[in-house]
Design a protein around this nucleic acid. Structure first.
Length: 782
DNA sequence: GTTCTAGAAC
DNA sequence: GTTCTAGAAC
């Protein structure tokens, strides 16, 4: 039997349970064979006056249509007063995104109904069916369903859903049907024949199938029904490894149990962390407690209201560290929802304390080995050998003050039993003469390292949450922020279409912003001009980069002037005119309009996240020099700019390496960029990204089409310009070769699979030339 | 830069 | 069935 897992947290926070089910856009989410169409058809039969089914497989006169057609039909139906079901797989965030945007635009509720049926069953159904609208049936079904299962990204509230329901059992589907069934005869709660959902949901009045029920259920009924399934849901998950895989969001996955603890927990991403260095490494407790509270407080302030929670855990209630941290955090007035201090076993927080923590920090040793008897031993033991294997895949050792994030394999007991998805290893300073690298009482260095350790731990946590959600961390658990960011890109593209947005033209610009709802940009400009703190500006900024940004970026921008050095020797042929080709240029020349995109602004450059990252870390450093579009335009006079851009990049790289010392970076330029405005890529070399999709993407970062910043500078210093390469036009279409072992791979999926496991050293040439940037820890090098 | 589609090749 | 490509539209 399948289980029901209503995302009660979302219902409690924003839920429609007290609203009527009008103007609802219901996105079905499920594999072929999961029962989406069956559900939709049944609902159509029972409530044809209230619901419209939009099915992409038949939308084009009975044939497969496009997403756009679905969007148009959905909008039309919603505007006509219907509720709308989107009957397509909707497996990924991108596939759902435009429907959420539509709902936002026309102020409709948008629900997700996840049919979380085991892959095996979906395949069986898909193989057996005949005459499927989309043609996915028979012998071709298994491969297709399997492949689609790999792409699932579970719907999350952060995407903008009003409600999310997960159905794992036939009973769940009945309940969902019961909830969405809108009887045109009115409110059946007044009908004596009706019973509440948890009492009887197996009515057979609709076409004699097991799905149908004409019972009208209140939302409270549904909520009660969900809550009765908590235990079963969890048990079912532990014993069933054949459920649909995907990006697991543990709070969503275990939402019922999570919400049963405390409704205020809803939406939080939680990191549980132990005291670092105070046990075996004998760091002074008073100093350590001060550092914990101070670093945590600063971190939570920086990410205020964004749903990140820190939980300090010590084994015993009467421990000295626990008492000190509790007292200091209370004295500082830290919010208990965001910063908790609890006694207990950090590896059993869910089972013993009913606290959901997807992330656990581990006070490890420099060799990252199990053992030691304390937290390290407990975590390695609880996680099973998978943690050691995954850790060793990354690095061999860890430097004091550094962190290493390791995703737990789904088979790990800690993952299965406690819902922990990541371990963040941290090494603190050692004050114990009996242990390696003793600082011999040097608390200046020791305190700095302990601060670094906690800071890296917290930032690694935030960074990981960011990558899980596919959105910058300052948008996590905050749909409004998410929409703002979305708007920012829309605005970017819109503004790219407009010509000549100059500072001199500010009155015109101001008028335009006001008439297009860009008051936010205006107010942000004001706050910067006045030198006030701007929360969003530095959200993503890393420690190493922060002080420079404050000293350079703001002071430059506050003048409201943008330098535009002239360029006389441009020889590149970057396409001009299209909105997208101009997008970077607009940011570079007018960063004040794009504050929520910029990570750092100086007089010469702007740092942003790549909109479509091709690796875990992918940033762009944009030159602000107008007219300079490509490295082919570069001459000796640009060397200062190139050094500046490289220096900026290094600041970010160093900060990233502190968060995760297993990363390796390259910084460089595309030989023939598609977008105007000289921009340098900062790329981690994992290439672990869904946005990396084709040969052109891969070759643009791994062939000589990618010109390392250091090499570009050297060429210009020696030759005065970037040297041409032979057969430039074929670089992007050449065969796919692993960037490490140089083996040829037949296609992108196989390449991605290969690079995920390839442990070969990087090509010696890259190392010798200094093009690879790694943690400054020789043992941490690959 | 992206998404989307159609068609070829496998 | 998937992968790849080219072209259009944005």
């Amino acid at each position: 039997m399948y289980k029901l897992n209503g995302d009660v947290s979302s219902l409690q926070s924003t839920g429609p349970m007290t609203e009527s089910l009008n103007n609802v856009l219901l996105l079905l989410v499920g594999l072929p064979g999961s029962g989406k169409s069956t559900f939709c058809n049944k609902l159509m039969q029972s409530s044809p006056q209230k619901w419209k089914r939009i099915c992409q497989d038949i939308i084009s006169n009975g044939k497969r249509g496009t997403k756009d057609q679905c969007l148009k039909e959905a909008e039309k139906a919603l505007c006509q007063g219907f509720n709308v079901m989107i009957d397509r797989c909707n497996l990924t965030i991108k596939q759902r995104q435009e429907f959420l945007q539509l709902a936002t635009r026309i102020s409709a509720q948008v629900h997700a109904l996840i049919l979380d049926i085991p892959v095996k069953i979906c395949i069986q159904r898909a193989m057996q069916r005949i005459g499927h609208e989309g043609g996915l049936e028979g012998k071709h079904a298994p491969a297709a369903v399997q492949r689609m299962a790999q792409t699932l990204e579970r719907p999350a509230e952060v995407e903008g859903f009003t409600s999310i329901f997960t159905c794992c059992t036939a009973d769940d589907i009945e309940r969902a049907f019961c909830m969405y069934h809108l009887d045109t005869q009115g409110d059946h709660r007044n009908n004596d024949n009706d019973k509440n959902v948890s009492g009887n949901v197996t009515g057979e009045r609709v076409c004699g199938t097991s799905l149908g029920s004409n019972k009208y259920c209140t939302h409270d009924d549904i909520r009660k029904a969900f809550s009765t399934h908590q235990l079963d849901t969890q048990q079912d998950y532990r014993n069933n490894d054949k459920r649909v895989p995907g990006k697991l969001n543990s709070e969503t996955e275990y939402g019922d149990n999570f919400s049963s603890i405390n409704s205020s927990d809803a939406g939080f991403r939680t990191l549980a962390f132990p005291s670092i260095s105070t046990s075996d490494f004998q760091f002074d407790h008073e100093k350590a407690a001060d550092i914990i509270v101070d670093v945590a407080s600063n971190f939570l302030q920086e990410f205020k209201g964004l749903g990140l929670r820190l939980v300090f855990v010590d084994l015993k209630e009467n421990s000295d560290m626990l008492t000190r941290v509790r007292q200091k955090s209370t004295a500082l007035g830290m919010r208990s929802e965001e910063f908790m201090v609890i006694a207990g076993d950090i590896t059993k927080l869910r089972s013993s304390s009913k606290l959901e923590c997807s992330f656990i920090a581990n006070a490890t040793n420099w060799r990252l080995r199990p053992g030691g008897g304390g937290v390290n031993a407990a975590i390695f033991n609880a996680a099973g050998e998978g943690l050691e294997i995954e850790t060793k895949k990354r690095v061999k050792t860890l430097a004091p003050g550094s962190a290493l994030t390791v995703p737990l394999p789904a088979s790990s007991p800690l993952y299965m039993n406690e819902g922990v998805t990541h371990i963040i290893h941290v090494l603190g300073p050692n004050m114990n003469p009996q242990r390696p690298n003793c600082l011999q009482g040097n608390y200046v260095e020791g305190s700095k390292l302990l601060r670094d350790a906690y800071s890296c731990m917290f930032r690694a946590f935030a960074s990981c949450v960011e990558s899980q959600s596919d959105q910058p961390v300052n948008q996590i658990t905050n749909p409004c922020k998410s929409k703002d960011k979305q708007n920012a890109f829309t605005i970017l593209m819109q503004s790219a279409k407009r010509k000549s947005w100059t500072v001199d033209n500010s009155m015109k610009a101001k008028h335009h912003r006001q008439t297009t709802g860009q008051q936010e940009a205006e107010s942000s400009m004001k706050s910067i001009s006045a030198g006030e703190s701007d929360d969003t500006f530095h959200k993503l900024e890393l420690d190493g980069a922060k002080s420079t940004a404050e000293s350079q970026g703001r002071s430059i921008i506050s003048k409201g002037e943008i330098q535009r050095p002239s360029l006389s020797t441009g020889v590149s042929k970057v396409k001009q005119g299209d909105a997208w080709t101009e997008a970077l240029r607009n940011i570079a020349l007018h960063p004040e309009h794009y504050q929520n995109m910029t990570l750092k602004v100086t007089d010469q450059a702007v740092v942003i996240n790549d909109k479509f990252p091709k690796a875990r870390k992918h940033l762009l450093v944009l030159s602000r020099m107008d007219g300079l579009d490509s490295i082919k335009d570069l001459r000796s006079s640009h060397l200062a700019l190139l050094y500046h851009m490289q220096s900026l990049g290094m600041e970010f790289v160093q900060a990233f390496l502190k968060e995760d010392i297993s990363l390796v970076f390259r910084m460089g330029y595309h030989l023939d960029p598609s977008m105007r405005q000289l921009h340098m890529h900062i790329m981690s070399q994992d290439f672990d990204s869904p946005s990396l999709k084709n040969k052109k993407h891969w070759n643009s970062f791994t062939s000589t089409f990618f010109r390392d910043s250091k090499g570009v500078i050297e060429e210009i210093e020696k030759m005065g310009r970037v040297q041409p390469v032979d057969d430039e036009s074929s670089l992007l279409t050449m065969e796919l070769r692993c960037h490490r072992c140089r083996s040829v791979q037949p296609n992108i999926p196989r390449l991605k699979k290969h690079i995920h496991t390839c442990q070969q050293p990087f090509p010696a040439g890259l190392l010798q030339k200094g093009f690879l940037i790694m943690a400054d820890n020789e043992n941490g090098k690959k």
